[in-house]
Amino acid sequence: MTKKRRRPIHLHVMVSEEELALLRARMAEAGVRNMGAYVRKMALNGYVLHVDLGPVRELVSLQRRCSNNLNQVAIQANTYGGVYPQDIAALQKDYADLWEPLSDLLEKLTQVVEL
């Protein structure tokens, strides 16, 4: 039984040692480990976009904390019928902390899209 490949055509390219070293350096720079995927992407699109998701992870963490705090305040309000002003202030601070990095990230993404 033969395995049906998604890309059945083999393409062979000869490079020098210097070119191979440069390819590997650029792959590492782009965060790509698969040479076939890198060469295919460069041949078809002319560029590889490496996205650092660190800021997104931070935003997700901030969003979780903000949501958790909001749930705690909602439980407090529904159970005891009141909310402390410091709870509202903490929610407002968390919300502000969330929007600053979010607006920075959106600005950076806009710059990337405009390239």
Rank of each mutant, 00 (worst) to 15 (best):
P8K: 02
I9C: 00
I9Y: 07
H12I: 15
V15K: 02
S16D: 11
S16Y: 01
E17L: 09
E17T: 08
L20R: 08
L20C: 03
L22G: 02
A25H: 07
A25N: 13
M27Y: 04
M27I: 06
E29Y: 11
R33N: 15
M35A: 06
A37R: 13
Y38C: 11
M42E: 02
L44D: 10
N45R: 12
Y47W: 06
Y47C: 10
V48H: 05
V48C: 00
H50A: 12
V51Y: 06
L53G: 06
L53Y: 10
G54H: 10
L59K: 00
S61K: 11
Q63G: 08
N69I: 02
L70A: 10
Q76E: 14
A77V: 10
T79K: 08
Q86M: 09
I88H: 08
A89I: 01
A90Y: 04
L91D: 00
Q92P: 04
K93M: 12
A96Y: 03
A96T: 08
L98Q: 07
W99D: 14
S103R: 15
S103F: 11
S103D: 15
L106M: 12
E107S: 15
E107D: 14
E107Y: 08
L109W: 02
T110G: 15
T110V: 05
Q111K: 14
V112W: 04
V113H: 12
L115F: 06
L115W: 11
